[in-house]
């Protein structure tokens, strides 16, 4: 970057971090994390020797039960196939005794390996909300307060100014998100080590958790960009938040009901929330109401989600930059 751009980035970073709204939303996010952590601390304890022995015995019993169940299941499956009722043939793979773990039989014990995924979903939701709010208010407040006009009197290249603002915002939200993820995941792991059980933390677990955290981080950046660009288009923070709220109420709730009533085929593919879910979970299976009419459930994967995110961001960000470049500043 050349020196003027560095100066602009420094000024924008200072402006973003000095904004009270950014600070308040950040503190609220920390508070949400803190409450989650405190609740977990309050509800976990280090298992005693007796609890561990009892849990191991219960796990052994469960494994034995599953071994028997598998034999019976295989017999029913073979019978169904022999009599030509293949659609009633059971899938016996779910009855796997190797999946039974001692942690499943411990009550009031936080097991990091079992809970980490769900905790990261929660983290992803808060990071996305943080990004949306800070992104929208950062540019929205500048547009309504005259701050942007002041800035353009110093830097008249609008696309550079808006691009630098967005870049600084993404860099900041990205850094805060990384720090939050490390602190959040690390905190719960330490908690499990100190007052719970780590669980089965093999290389595959850490790889999957790492990829989930990466997707949560990218999701936060997607929502940050959406908030920023919607506020730029609407020239106001409330425009972005209004569009978001209106989308949730009118489309995700209202349109979903209507589309289901008229049995619209694959209606769930039109809902952004499903792609958010697919992005985090890697794959979701969707059961439309049309399944009642015989249509099959279908899957949305993280690649579908990546495509939707890319198209949506390209459209909204493109519109925001074109609009900002051409508009008259009041």
């Amino acid at each position: 970057m050349n020196r003027p751009t560095v100066n602009l980035v420094r000024a924008e970073l200072h402006r973003l971090l000095a904004r009270r709204f950014t600070q308040v939303v950040f503190v609220l996010m920390l508070a949400a994390f803190g409450i989650t952590f405190a609740t977990t601390v309050a509800s976990t304890h280090t298992p005693t020797r007796a609890e561990l022995v009892a849990a191991e015995q219960a796990a052994d019993l469960q494994r034995e039960y599953l071994r028997t169940a598998i034999v019976q299941c295989e017999e029913r499956r073979a019978e169904a196939l022999r009599t030509g009722n293949a659609r009633f043939a059971e899938d016996c793979r779910s009855l796997d005794p190797n999946r039974v773990r001692l942690e499943d039989f411990l009550d009031g014990v936080f097991v990091f390996g079992e809970s980490a995924g769900d905790l990261v979903y929660f983290l992803a939701a808060f990071l996305a909300l943080f990004g949306l709010l800070v992104g929208a208010s950062y540019v929205g407040a500048e547009l309504t307060s005259g701050g942007m006009t002041n800035l353009l009197l110093w830097r008249p290249r609008r696309e550079v100014v808006l691009g630098t603002k967005l870049g600084t915002l993404l860099g900041t939200v990205g850094a805060i998100s990384v720090a939050s993820i490390v602190a959040y995941v690390g905190g719960f792991w330490l908690l499990a080590e100190a007052a719970g059980l780590p669980g089965n933390l093999d290389a595959q677990f850490w790889t999957q958790l790492g990829l989930l955290c990466l997707r949560a981080w990218l999701l936060a950046l997607v929502f940050t960009t959406l908030g920023f660009c919607l506020a730029t288009l609407g020239r106001h923070t409330a425009a972005a938040l209004g569009v978001f709220a209106a989308y949730l109420v009118l489309w995700e709730i209202g349109a979903r009901i209507v589309l289901n009533v008229i049995r619209w085929p694959r209606a769930e593919t039109l809902m952004f929330s499903n792609y958010v879910g697919a992005w985090l979970a890697k794959r979701i299976t969707v059961y439309d109401l049309c399944a009642l009419d015989g249509c099959a459930p279908y899957q949305l994967t993280l690649w579908h989600a990546a495509g939707v995110f890319a198209v949506l961001l390209a459209l909204i960000a493109g519109a925001a930059f074109v609009s900002f470049r051409r508009r008259d500043m009041s």
């Binding site: 100066n7 602009l8 420094r10 000024a11 200072h14 402006r15 000095a18 904004r19 009270r20 407040a141 307060s145 005259g146 701050g147 006009t149 002041n150 800035l151 110093w154 830097r155």
Partner: peptide
């Protein structure tokens, strides 16, 4: 012109000077 109400006058100008 409008400025951020929570910034001091000096901070407002320093931001512009940095820019």
């Amino acid at each position: 012109p409008q400025f951020f109400a929570n910034f001091s006058g000096r901070r407002t100008l320093r931001l512009l000077a940095t820019t």
